[in-house]
Measured scan of single mutants.
Amino acid sequence: NLRWTSEAKTKLKNIPFFARSQAKARIEQLARQAEQDIVTPELVEQARLEFG
């Protein structure tokens, strides 16, 4: 299971509600691909840039 830093959680809250669950799934996918067990603000930002 993935842990989220408080900064990453804050960044996730800045994503519009309607896109948040999809973004969260993508962020967690990116973390797993990078073999990380902690979601960082950088991963959230990477996903945000993908979504535009």
Rank of each mutant, 00 (worst) to 15 (best):
N1D: 12
N1L: 12
L2D: 01
R3A: 10
R3K: 13
W4N: 01
W4G: 01
W4H: 00
W4L: 00
T5Q: 04
T5Y: 02
T5N: 05
T5I: 03
S6F: 10
S6T: 12
S6Q: 14
S6I: 12
E7T: 07
E7P: 04
E7L: 08
E7F: 03
A8L: 01
K9F: 11
K9T: 11
T10A: 10
T10F: 11
T10L: 15
T10G: 08
K11H: 12
K11M: 15
K11Q: 12
K11C: 07
L12S: 01
L12W: 08
L12N: 01
L12Y: 07
L12D: 00
K13C: 11
K13M: 15
N14G: 10
N14L: 15
N14P: 01
N14R: 12
I15C: 03
I15V: 07
I15K: 01
P16M: 03
P16E: 03
F17T: 08
F17Y: 13
F17V: 10
F17W: 14
F18W: 15
F18I: 09
F18H: 15
A19M: 15
A19N: 12
A19Y: 15
A19L: 15
R20T: 03
R20N: 02
R20E: 03
R20G: 02
S21F: 08
S21P: 07
S21N: 10
S21W: 09
S21E: 14
Q22H: 09
Q22V: 10
Q22N: 09
Q22G: 08
Q22A: 13
Q22W: 12
A23I: 15
A23G: 02
A23N: 02
K24Y: 07
K24A: 07
K24G: 02
K24N: 02
K24F: 09
K24Q: 05
K24V: 13
A25M: 11
A25K: 14
R26N: 04
R26G: 02
I27V: 11
I27F: 01
E28R: 03
E28G: 02
Q29D: 09
Q29A: 12
L30M: 10
L30H: 03
L30A: 04
L30Q: 03
A31P: 00
A31G: 02
R32W: 05
R32I: 10
R32M: 11
R32Q: 07
R32K: 10
Q33D: 12
Q33N: 10
Q33P: 01
A34W: 13
A34H: 11
A34F: 14
A34G: 08
A34N: 13
E35I: 05
E35Q: 15
E35N: 15
Q36E: 07
D37T: 15
D37L: 13
D37C: 09
I38F: 10
I38G: 02
I38L: 10
I38C: 06
I38T: 09
V39Y: 00
V39L: 01
V39N: 00
T40I: 03
P41C: 05
P41K: 11
P41E: 12
P41Q: 08
E42P: 03
E42I: 06
L43Q: 03
L43I: 09
L43F: 11
V44E: 00
V44I: 07
V44S: 01
V44K: 01
V44D: 00
E45P: 01
E45R: 05
E45Y: 06
Q46Y: 09
Q46V: 09
A47L: 08
R48N: 07
R48M: 15
R48W: 15
R48V: 14
L49W: 10
L49R: 13
E50P: 05
F51Y: 12
F51C: 06
F51Q: 06
F51P: 04
G52H: 13
G52E: 15
G52C: 11
G52R: 09
